[in-house]
Simulated scan of single mutants.
Amino acid sequence: MDYGDKLFWLSVVIQRKYAEVCAEFDLTPAQATLLCAVRNEPRRMADLAASLGMTKNALSQLVDRTARRELVGRASSAQDRRVVMLSATPTGKVLGEAVYAEVAKRLPEIARNLDADDQRDFERVATAIVDISDLSPPASNQRVTP
């Protein structure tokens, strides 16, 4: 297997572990990701779609399904009525925090058979990759009150 194959299979290992955790909370991986993304503060729908690599339409459908479970809600921004903000409901916040905590606890298990130095290296490299990624919009775009 070449490096690309290894990265592909690493993504499968991560997705499988993540899906196991999500199922325990009766959430799809997409719903869990959405809840974790908005658990601490409201986010602009457009920014969230970009961060999650989804079209606005796909995110809207995901939000509709998750809102039917009363886990998230939409609101217009106080600064700009055209901007739609997404936030967790109180129930969604509790569930999002629980999912996030369980994922943070169990995802590192994928490296459990590595020695301590390799585990530290894995954590360092994974952190560096996320830190330089385009997963989050600039902080100035995130703090808009609904």
Rank of each mutant, 00 (worst) to 15 (best):
A116D: 11
T91G: 13
R106L: 13
G53W: 00
K56Q: 11
R124Q: 15
A78K: 15
A50L: 11
L52W: 04
L10F: 14
A98F: 08
R124F: 06
A126E: 02
D115K: 03
S76G: 14
M45W: 05
A111G: 11
A46G: 04
A23L: 10
R120K: 11
V103P: 01
A32M: 03
R124T: 14
S133E: 04
E24D: 08
S60P: 02
A75R: 15
G92A: 09
A139W: 06
S77F: 09
L135D: 05
D47C: 14
R120E: 14
W9E: 09
L71K: 01
V99N: 03
S11R: 01
R16L: 04
Y18F: 14
V125Y: 12
L62R: 06
A49H: 10
R68A: 11
S136Y: 15
A98H: 05
A58W: 08
Q142V: 03
I110E: 06
I110M: 03
C22W: 12
F25S: 05
I129R: 04
L10P: 00
M45V: 15
Q119Y: 07
A101Q: 12
K56G: 07
L71T: 05
S87A: 13
P146A: 09
A58S: 15
L107W: 06
A46N: 01
T55M: 04
A88S: 13
A58H: 12
R16V: 11
E24W: 00
N113R: 15
D2N: 13
R16A: 04
Y100K: 14
K93D: 08
R106M: 03
K93P: 00
A23Y: 01
E41N: 10
V12S: 01
A19I: 00
K17A: 08
V63N: 10
G96H: 06
V144S: 10
P138V: 03
S60I: 02
M45G: 01
T145F: 14
A19H: 08
R74T: 09
E70H: 11
F8Q: 07
A126H: 11
A67S: 00
R69E: 08
K93M: 00
R74K: 11
A46E: 09
R74W: 06
M85Y: 00
A19D: 08
G96R: 04
S76Y: 08
K105I: 02
G53M: 02
R112W: 03
P137E: 08
R74C: 08
E97A: 13
R120Y: 08
G4R: 15
D80V: 00
Y3F: 15
R65T: 06
K105D: 10
V94H: 15
Y3W: 07
G73N: 14
P42A: 12
R16D: 02
D64L: 13
A128K: 10
A126W: 14
R82N: 12
R65D: 13
V72A: 10
A128I: 08
L95A: 05
A88N: 00
Y3C: 09
D134R: 14
D2Q: 02
S136W: 11
D5V: 05
L107Y: 01
